[in-house]
Design a protein around this nucleic acid. Structure first.
Lengths: 350, 350
DNA sequence: TTGTACGCGTTATCAT
DNA sequence: ATGATAACGCGTACAA
C-alpha cells in the first residue's frame, strides 16, 4: 500500500519538469522522441499510473458514460448493453450502469447520481412509470447529451433510437389476418411507453385496413412478464368466442401465454395463432416455434453509443437526426402458420 | 452551459467559509443546525452539485466498483449484475462494467482500465482463456480488494464466491444413473475454469461411485454456445452405441443439443435423458422441460457485492472466509425422467 | 523543445 | 461552531 507514483516523482527522477512528463505520457508532439522514450520507460519501471480523477478535475470531463435501463436481467437489454460496452470500450470510455426497476423514483435517483458523477453523456431507456423528462433537464441545460433508446420520449434536444414499432406491429397483425385470423387479441405493456403505444396503433391500423373491427376488449394491458402471460391466457380462455390470433408485445410474455393455452388444450396455431416480439432465444425453443419480430438489440446499443460519441466529439450540432430508426423484421415460424402450405420460413423486411 | 456552482460560490453568497459549506453539505456534526439549513437551501436554490472528482482526488477513493464479466449478454450474468447493481446502488456506489468476451487480452486491458480508474474494489468472473492472475496483482498489492465469483481461481488474498459445482454435477449425474442411464455423455466448457473442471469431477466421481466406467470419449469440450450444442448433438449421433444420458454444463447448450437430437428422431428422455445447468428461462420452455441445476445468479451478485462492501468498510481482515459457497439445487423435470412413475417433480437440495 | 506557475473543487489539519 | 490554508495530481497558458 505504498504511495502512488505521480508525474512529479518521474520528473524528479529524470531531472525534467512535470510538464514534460505530462506531455510525453499524453504523446504530445512537442516532446523529443528520445525524451518520450526515457519517460515512458521510467514510468513503467516506477509503476506509475495516471490519476484519472486529477485529470478529470482538470479537464472537466470524465470519459464516462451513464446508462439507465429498466432492468438488467432482460435478454433484450443485455444485448443492448453488450453492444454499448463494446463500442465504449474501444473508444476509451467507461460505462456506469444502473437500473430503474421500472419505477420513476429510482430513475430520478439514478439520473441524479449520474449527474453528480459528471458523466459526459447519458443513455436512457425509460421506465414504465415515467411521464415527463424533467429529471433530465439538468443534463440538457448543461449541454450534456442525452440519448433515449427503445423506450423513448420526444425531446427537442435529444436523439432517440428506435425501431418502427408501428410498422412492425402492423406487419405482424397483417400476417395474422392473412393467415385467416379475424378475431385477434393484442397483449401489450404500459401505454405511456412509445413501444407499446405504437404497437397498439400498428395493431389497430392493420385491423382497420383489412376491414376488421377493432375492439378495446381485445387489448390486454399487462406487465409483460412471464406471470403476466399466464394471467393473460386465463383471461383469453374466458373469452367467448375465443380469439383466433394473439399478437404479444414481447417473447417472454408470448411464450408463457402460449404454454398456458396449450395446457388448456388449445392447438397452436390451428385454434389460435400467436406472434411475439423481440426474437429472444426462447422464441426458437418453444413449440411450436414462435413467429416474432427480430429486434436488433446489440446493434441498437452500438448505434446509440456511436451517436453519443459523435455528439461528444463532433460539433455540438452534429446530431445526425433527431430520431434514428433501425430496421426490424418479421420472422415467421410455426406459431402463426395456419395454412401449412406457406410453411417455408420467410423473412419480411420492414 | 453556464459555469458550475462550487462551494466557494455558496460561501461568498452566504458570507461563510468554504470549509463550513463543505461540512454542512456532508452533514458534519460540528455545524450549527440553522447554518446547515441555510446552506442546503442556498445550495439547492443556486443549483449546486458536488464535484465527485475533486472529492475523489482529495479523499483518494472513488465510490466506484469495477466489474469484469465474460459476456454481458448471458442470462446468468445478467441476473448476477442485476443483483450487484441493486446492492451497490443502495450503498451509494457506482458500478463500472466491462466484458472480456472470453479473451485474456481483453480481460487484461479491462483490468488495467479499472486500475487506472481507481475503482475501490473489483469483481471478476474469469474468461475462458485466463490461466494466471498476474493482471490483478496491481490491485492486490495496493490493497484494493478483488473478489472472484462463479468462474474463480485461488488467490491467497481474494475471496471467491461459488456454488459447489462438483456436488451439483455429482447429483445430476447420479440422478441420471438412478433413472437407469449407464452410458452418459458430459458436455462442458474449457477445463481451465473451475466451474467446468469441477463439474467434470462430479460427473466422473458419480460414475465411479456407481460402478460405471468413465471414458474420456464421453466428455465433449465445447464453447457452450447455442451452436456448440448443435455440433455436440451431431457428434453424439455418430456414437455407437448411442449414449442413454447427457449432462450438459449449461442450459443454452443443453437445449440446442436436445432440439437437434429430437430433430434426428431421438426420443427425450426415453432414448436419451438430458440434464442442463443454470435454470435459465429457456429450460422451462423446451419440450420436454429440462432438468437442470438452479443457480442463484441474482443472489450471487448480491453476496459478492456485500462481501466487497464489508472489505471496503470493515477492517482490512474482516474477510468472512476465503471461499463462500452458495446453495444450488437439482430441479427435476421431464427431460430426465425415464421412469414415468417418478414423474412428480421434486427438488433435491444440495 | 522544455519549464514555471497556477487552477480545477474538494477536504484535512490546525487554529480560533 | 467556524475559518484559513494547504494539499490531492494533473494540464495548460505563458514564458524562455
Amino acid at each position: 500500500m505504498e504511495k502512488d507514483i505521480t508525474i512529479y516523482d518521474i520528473a524528479r527522477e529524470l531531472d525534467l519538469s512535470p510538464t514534460t512528463i505530462s506531455r510525453a505520457l499524453n504523446d504530445h508532439p512537442a516532446v523529443n522522441k528520445k525524451t518520450k522514450q526515457r519517460i515512458s520507460e521510467a514510468a513503467a519501471q516506477m509503476g506509475y499510473r495516471s490519476n484519472l480523477f486529477a485529470s478529470n478535475l482538470r479537464r472537466q470531463r470524465t470519459n464516462t458514460i451513464g446508462l439507465i435501463v429498466p432492468r438488467l436481467d432482460s435478454p433484450f437489454h443485455s444485448s443492448v448493453i453488450a453492444g454499448m460496452e463494446k463500442v465504449a470500450n474501444e473508444a476509451g470510455y467507461n460505462l456506469i450502469i444502473s437500473q430503474s426497476l421500472e419505477t420513476l423514483q429510482k430513475e430520478i435517483a439514478n439520473a441524479n447520481t449520474m449527474f453528480n458523477s459528471r458523466v459526459d453523456g447519458l443513455l436512457v431507456s425509460l421506465s414504465f412509470e415515467t411521464e415527463t423528462l424533467e429529471h433530465f433537464e439538468n443534463f440538457v441545460s448543461k449541454g450534456i447529451p442525452v440519448i433515449f433508446y427503445d423506450r423513448v420520449a420526444e425531446h427537442k434536444e435529444c436523439t432517440s433510437i428506435v425501431i418502427d414499432n408501428l410498422q412492425a406491429a402492423y406487419k405482424a397483425t397483417s400476417h395474422l389476418i392473412e393467415q385467416g385470423c379475424t378475431n385477434i387479441v393484442h397483449i401489450t405493456g404500459n401505454l405511456k411507453r412509445n413501444v407499446y403505444a405504437d404497437r397498439l396503433k400498428g395493431f389497430k391500423y392493420a385491423l382497420i385496413d383489412h376491414n376488421l373491427p377493432f375492439s378495446e376488449e381485445n387489448v390486454i394491458i399487462s406487465k409483460m412478464t412471464e406471470e403476466a402471460g399466464t394471467l393473460a391466457a386465463q383471461q383469453i380462455l374466458e373469452m367467448d368466442p375465443l380469439p383466433d390470433g394473439i399478437f404479444v408485445s414481447n417473447d417472454t410474455c408470448a411464450v408463457s401465454c402460449l404454454k398456458a393455452l396449450k395446457k388448456a388444450n388449445i392447438s397452436i396455431p390451428r385454434d389460435i395463432a400467436v406472434i411475439g416480439f423481440n426474437n429472444d432465444a426462447i422464441s426458437r425453443v418453444v413449440e411450436p416455434n414462435l413467429t416474432t419480430i427480430n429486434y436488433p438489440g446489440q446493434e441498437m446499443g452500438e448505434v446509440a453509443l456511436r451517436v453519443l460519441l459523435l455528439q461528444l466529439n463532433g460539433s455540438r450540432d452534429n446530431v445526425p437526426s433527431n430520431t434514428i430508426n433501425l430496421r426490424s423484421e418479421l420472422i415467421i415460424r410455426e406459431s402463426s402458420l395456419k395454412s401449412k402450405s406457406n410453411a417455408k420460413k420467410k423473412a419480411v423486411h420492414l
